[in-house]
Simulated scan of single mutants.
Amino acid sequence: MPAAALKPKPLPTQSSAKRPVQLDLPYEPVEKRPLPPGRPREWYVTHNRRLKAMRLAIALLDLGVYVPNQARNEKIRSTAELIGVHPPSDTTCHMVRALMRYSR
């Protein structure tokens, strides 16, 4: 018997399934791990800024803001307050709009 016949078929994903795949609920975030040591400080600042921008972009999409020009700095900052994140800088607000632009 060929080795390929012994391998179990992978479970279908949302895109390959004939019917919608049930999501595992309740959602639990991945366990946080410390960031790798020895990097320059700027790397950590940029990394955390990207994470914050992604969280804000997702929250804005959930609120119905789909176009970057709808996401003014005031809207992004009010969304940050809504989800419990410190108010973002102008640089982070720019990054949020960039993420929304390039995800299309």
Rank of each mutant, 00 (worst) to 15 (best):
M1T: 14
A3R: 09
A3H: 09
A4F: 11
A4I: 13
A4P: 00
L6S: 08
L6N: 02
P8R: 06
P8K: 04
K9T: 12
P10F: 05
L11M: 06
L11E: 12
P12A: 10
T13A: 12
T13Q: 08
S15Y: 03
S15D: 15
S16I: 14
K18Y: 06
K18H: 06
R19F: 12
V21D: 07
Q22N: 08
L25A: 14
P26I: 01
P26F: 02
Y27C: 09
E28A: 12
E28M: 07
P29Q: 05
P29M: 11
V30I: 13
E31N: 03
E31S: 07
E31Y: 01
K32D: 15
K32G: 12
R33V: 14
P36V: 11
P36H: 02
G38S: 08
G38P: 03
R39P: 02
P40Y: 04
R41L: 13
R41Q: 11
R41E: 15
E42K: 02
W43Y: 06
W43C: 03
W43A: 11
V45N: 06
V45I: 11
T46E: 15
N48G: 01
N48C: 08
N48F: 00
R49D: 15
R50E: 15
R50K: 01
L51I: 10
K52I: 03
K52F: 00
R55K: 12
L56D: 04
A57Q: 06
A57E: 15
I58T: 10
I58R: 00
D62K: 00
D62Y: 00
D62R: 00
D62F: 01
G64F: 07
V65N: 03
Y66W: 01
Y66G: 06
Y66V: 13
V67E: 15
V67D: 15
Q70E: 15
Q70C: 10
A71Q: 10
R72Q: 11
R72M: 08
R72T: 15
N73I: 12
E74Y: 02
E74S: 07
E74A: 13
E74V: 14
I76L: 06
I76H: 10
R77W: 05
R77E: 15
T79K: 04
T79H: 04
A80P: 02
I83N: 04
G84I: 12
G84S: 03
H86Y: 00
P87S: 08
P87D: 14
P88D: 07
P88Y: 03
P88A: 07
P88W: 01
S89L: 04
S89P: 04
D90E: 10
T91M: 04
T92P: 05
T92W: 01
T92I: 14
H94E: 11
H94T: 09
M95E: 11
V96M: 06
R97C: 13
L99Y: 13
L99C: 07
R101H: 06
R101P: 05
Y102V: 09
S103M: 08
R104P: 00
